[in-house]
């Protein structure tokens, strides 16, 4: 019998065994190592030891500007965005009990994108950019509501959800293109880069704006981890165990949408992270939400940071959006999942 670490209060109940703890520790160390590499790499290669020194010492050294103003906020934003998308995908996958669900496949990301492009094209001059995340989240929420309603036919089946999502992705994509075509070229370039999914030019303002969302939403989802675990057993069992299925399902969907929406607001539509990260996490830690959530968070964060690091170093002086690399890995992975599911 494994030693178990139990965290149980009136609101939270999470049980982690020693293997999970070790794995999470390894992931954390890996994340820090990746972050360090990402801080060192760039048009100007810095010695990692110097980077650590720079970060730990209080007075600014010679690389202070490069590290603390240019690279660090970008790495942190990348990590937060990846983590948010990963947890959003994890919740969705548990919710519809289908490994193919993720915010981008079923159209939540497209909804957020369309709303954000609308905001950039028509409202950016009159309204403060601080409202952009709200616009994105609103778009994500509206889209998921529409998908949910359209997929409803005496209950929602995962298959219908995905097919309808694919249809909506095409329609929303057309609307987004439409807005980009009609807006002036400067705006359309901005919107286009953003659509591909890039954390280019992130600054501390982005970090401080994004962080609160995660700090609220992630603990909230952990609080519900008990019911998520039960929901995977199917509706009748869940009801029998005294969970208010429809209400928790709604709350979970809302959390998932808000996570995806806020991530999309700051980094654009980085696809496939919400799909891949939870799957990798499932290979590494036991299938309970309490352990999957932190693992997915770390993995998703690493994915985006790595993709972004490759994007800004591989084709110097070009800065290729991180979304391109994530898709390059994500699409084959999706097909692999498809193959496995139907075998």
């Amino acid at each position: 019998m494994d030693k178990l670490l139990t965290l149980r209060t009136s609101v939270v109940s999470i049980q982690l065994n020693s293997v999970t703890l070790k794995m999470l520790g390894t992931l954390l160390i890996g994340t820090l190592a990746i972050a360090l590499m990402s801080l060192s790499a760039g048009s100007q290669w810095l010695n990692p030891i110097e980077v650590v020194k720079e970060l730990l010492l209080s007075e600014p050294g010679q690389h202070a500007f490069v590290i603390e103003t240019l690279r660090l906020p970008r790495v942190v934003t990348g990590f937060l965005v990846g983590g948010a998308l990963a947890v959003s995908g994890l919740i969705l996958q548990s919710l519809v009990r289908n490994p193919l669900a993720s915010p981008d496949i079923i159209g939540i990301t497209s909804g957020a994108s369309a709303a954000a492009v609308f905001f950039l094209s028509y409202l950016a001059e009159t309204v403060s950019a601080l409202w952009l995340p709200f616009a994105a989240i609103l778009g994500a929420a509206l889209t998921s509501l529409i998908i949910y309603l359209l997929a409803w036919r005496q209950g929602v089946t995962p298959l219908r959800l995905i097919l309808i999502g694919i249809g909506l992705v095409a329609g929303l994509g057309a609307m987004t293109t439409f807005m980009i075509v009609l807006s002036p070229i400067a705006t359309s370039m901005m919107a286009y880069v953003w659509l591909t999914g890039s954390i280019y030019g992130s600054d501390w303002q982005d970090v401080t704006a994004l962080l609160p969302w995660l700090l609220v939403l992630l603990p909230l989802s952990l609080m519900l981890s008990r019911t998520i675990n039960v929901q995977e057993l199917g509706d009748p069992v869940t009801v029998g165990l005294g969970v208010q299925v429809q209400r928790t399902r709604f709350v979970l969907l809302a959390i998932s949408v808000a996570l995806a929406g806020s991530a999309v607001a700051y980094a654009g539509a980085i696809g496939f992270v919400g799909l891949i990260a939870p799957h990798i996490a499932r290979q590494l830690v036991p299938r309970s939400f309490g352990s999957l959530a932190p693992a997915s968070l770390l993995i998703g964060g690493c994915l985006v940071v790595v993709a972004d690091t490759i994007g800004r170093t591989a084709f110097l002086p070009l800065d290729v959006p991180a979304g391109v690399f994530v898709s390059a890995v994500g699409a084959p992975f999706f097909i692999y999942l498809l193959y496995r599911q139907h075998r």
């Binding site: 694919i166 992705v169 659509l195 591909t196 391109v324 898709s327 699409a331 084959p332 097909i335």
Partner: peptide, 16 residues
């Protein structure tokens, strides 16, 4: 689904 994934891949490359 395979079509959706391949479309996503090509669109992303095109955008890049």
């Amino acid at each position: 689904l395979a079509g959706a994934a391949i479309t996503a891949l090509f669109v992303s490359f095109t955008q890049g």
